[in-house]
Amino acid sequence: MNVMNDSPRRKELTRQAAQLFVQAGFDRTTVRMLAQEMGIKSGSLFHHFRDKQEILTAVIEEGTQNALIIAKAALEQCDNSAEARLQAMARAHLETLLTDRNAHVVALYEWRRLDPEARDHLSHLRDAYEALWETVIDEALAAGLIHGDRFLVARFVMGALNWTVRWYDPSGPRSPDDLAHELVAMITHRPV
């Protein structure tokens, strides 16, 4: 299975599909709705995608690829201290939510709608992203910066960050950096 495609038109269609999946949900989004949103005929949609399942896969794949790119760049640009790396990952995760919000929301809420083949295809990307978090959390645990079970710490941190898609207002008084600092302060028991 290969759903990634560098075609600018396909990327735009994927972006529009992500928005519609967030608004209506994958199950309630019809091919006709997708085509109308994309400004094409229903049959033309199948020139770009095999079916609706492939569109969902493309949305999640592109969003997860972008999250990996942002996280890796953040880790390369920060110093090597456990706290800086934890801060960089939290900030990168929030940046992903802000720059690619719809794809991220679709990945969070519609993953269960993927067929087994698509899940298998995308699992390596999800696992790679989670592995970055686990490495950073292991470093923070080893440095004594945080305490607890790595699996639980990772799930709590990512869960808290993922939930920001429901309440965070980018035009509000707190920046993504503020949120990342606050999260790290909470889990490390340090003042902001």
Rank of each mutant, 00 (worst) to 15 (best):
I70T: 13
R85I: 01
C78H: 03
T64I: 11
A103L: 08
F49H: 08
T99I: 11
E95Y: 00
M89F: 02
A82M: 08
A88D: 03
A84T: 06
I55R: 03
N80E: 14
E95R: 08
F46M: 13
L68K: 02
T64M: 13
E61V: 09
Q53L: 12
K72M: 06
I60Y: 04
S44G: 15
R85C: 02
L97V: 10
R50Y: 06
L75I: 04
R85K: 15
A71I: 03
F46C: 07
K72S: 08
Q77A: 15
A90W: 00
S81R: 07
A103I: 09
R91E: 12
A74V: 04
R85Y: 01
S44Q: 15
S44P: 09
A103Q: 14
L75Y: 01
L75F: 02
K72F: 03
E83R: 15
I60Q: 06
S44E: 14
N80C: 10
F46L: 12
E95Q: 10
R50E: 13
K52A: 04
R85A: 00
L86V: 14
N80V: 10
E54N: 06
C78F: 00
A92P: 11
Q77L: 11
A67F: 12
D51W: 13
R50P: 02
L75V: 02
A90Y: 02
S44A: 14
R101T: 11
A90E: 04
Q53T: 14
N66G: 06
E76C: 13
R91S: 12
Q77T: 06
L98Q: 12
I60H: 04
L56Q: 05
Q53W: 13
A88I: 00
G63M: 09
V105Q: 04
Q53D: 14
Q77V: 05
A82L: 08
E54T: 06
Q87N: 11
F49W: 10
F46E: 10
V59K: 09
